[in-house]
Structures are given as C-alpha cells and as structure tokens.
Design a protein around this nucleic acid. Sequence first.
DNA 1: GTTGACATTGAAGCGGCTACAGGGTTCCAA
DNA 2: TTGGAACCCTGTAGCCGCTTCAATGTCAAC
Lengths: 152, 152
Amino acid sequence: MAAGVDVETIRYYEKAGLLPSPARRANGYRDYGGKHLERLAFIRHCRALDLPLAKISRLLELLSQPAAACDDVDRLVESQLERVRIRIRSLRALEKQLSALRSRCAGPQTAAACGILHELVTAAHRESVAHAGEDRAAAAPVTRGGRRKVQA
Amino acid sequence: MAAGVDVETIRYYEKAGLLPSPARRANGYRDYGGKHLERLAFIRHCRALDLPLAKISRLLELLSQPAAACDDVDRLVESQLERVRIRIRSLRALEKQLSALRSRCAGPQTAAACGILHELVTAAHRESVAHAGEDRAAAAPVTRGGRRKVQA
DNA sequence: GTTGACATTGAAGCGGCTACAGGGTTCCAA
DNA sequence: TTGGAACCCTGTAGCCGCTTCAATGTCAAC
C-alpha cells in the first residue's frame, strides 16, 4: 500500500521524532505497519493545514493521552486560522500592488524607459523617506531597546 | 539617517552580492552613502512584494544597464502576481477547512472526546484511502519516473 | 576608568524538506 | 548469468531569508 509521501520526508519525520522508528526486515528495509501509516496520514493532513511540525507533535501527544484535557487543541486551531487570515490579507494587498505595477508596463522598452522599473525605484524612494520620518518621530520619547538600524 | 533595516540583514545582502561593500571609516565601521541607501530601499521594497532575492538581483542588474531590454521585468511581475494569486486561493481553501474544524469544538473536553482531534483523525484517514486508490489507478498505465513512495 | 551602547567578524540555527554521494538489494529480461 | 533498472540504506549538505550567537573592538558619557 503506497502512502503517497516522499520517502525522504518520512525519514525526516522519523529523525524529528514525529514517527517512531519502524521495524526492520532482514535486509534492513523499513517495515511500516498500519499504525505508522495512520500516524503519517495524520501528520500529512495537518501539514496540509499548514500546521508547523511542533504543533502537530503536540496533537499527536494528545492523541496518545485520551484522558488529557484538550483545551489547547481549540486554541491551536484558532491561532492557525488567525495566521491564515492575516496572511490572506497581506497577500491581497500584495496582489493589488503587483497588478498596479504590471499596468505600468507599456510594452517592450529599454530598462531606462521601463515603467515598472521606474515605479519600483520611486516607490522604494518614497518608502525610505517615510521610514526616515518615522524614525525621527520615534527617536524623541525614549531610546527603547529596539533592534539596531543602520547609519549613513 | 536611519534606514529602518536590521544591520544583520544588510550584511547578509552584502555577502549575497546584492549590495556592494561600502567604504570603511578609519575604525572599520561601514560608511553607507546615498547610493547604498537607495539600493537598499529598492531591495526592501521588492522584498515587500515578496520577490525572491535572485529576481531582485536581476532587477538591479537591469537598473545598471539602462540600454538593456526589459522584457523579463514584465514577465517577472506577471509570474509573481500569478504565484500570489495561487497562494491566496490555497489559503482561502485552508481558511475554510480550519473554520469548519473549529466549529467541531464543543468546549472543554478530554482528548478522547475532542471533536477537532476526532475530525482530524478521520479526515486524515479518508485522505490516505483516497491516495491509495489514486496510486492503484496511476500504477496501471506506465511505471513513470515519479518520486518513490513508501510501502507498508 | 568604567559602564553601556554601539560596531566588527564568522559561524550556526530556524523550518521543512530536498538532493546527493556512495553504497546495498531485489527483480526482471536478454 | 549477467546486467541494468528501480528500489532501499546512511549520512551529509543545500535551499531561502534571515536571525542569533559568541567573541572582540570602539566610542561617548558619566
């Protein structure tokens, strides 16, 4: 029975402690049983939901302790959902910018006349000026322990 | 003038060949000039558009060759836009799944009774069965050179 | 002179695989 | 029977775009 998962990925999970090491055949080949495959399917399903391996690990732990409380399962799903929504919002903003950018293209040009390149440069410039203003404003109240930035 | 970019990130760009090494002061400190800052701002703006460094590198190259043709600038933006749209679609599907999953939560439970965990396990199982069917179907015509999957 | 916040370098770590080198095994066909 | 393809093994390094760390140097303020 094929599991539909790349071998290297499985071995990676094994090394990472998400899958127990399977029994070996006489020749040293791994021998996966039903339990392994179910566990693997569970992992892949969770990965398809973009859960990080660390959280999946936690879920697997809970699965093996039926009496444990499951409050953080809900929290985990909730926070994952929130992450996904945030990512969608930022990608939508990105999409807007990129399609605006695309509309700057006026057909084959030289680099010097390229509307897209031109827009990228001026947008970058605008932003860097805005940043400088921000920093000047933020510098006044306290010298808080933010990460260091660069001087020119 | 602060550039709003983490120092380590800048050095990373320098090592990666995206930024030229700046002049040094007597004590060895880096001395950034206007050109550097502009170039840095350009890079950060492109990164904000989620362009990979390799593509940004290509754009910078074009910027320094005003006479070059800029056809691939358009293609680059286009393909980036396509990537973003695909990602949005898949994240929306994800959002759906996650919010369906969340609705399975019936308040504090033990792990054994947790609706979410339960759903995860059965969904994973369904999928693994579907996969097995797929593979059986795909195995018939030709043994094409796909990546190897696991046996149980 | 001592503290504290900056700067420098190089190397390692993150996540989640993916690829590759250098071998062994199994199976099928010529 | 031999040869080649297609699988398996182990171990290590690479990918991206940073981030973090350790060990050291420099500089301004108190």
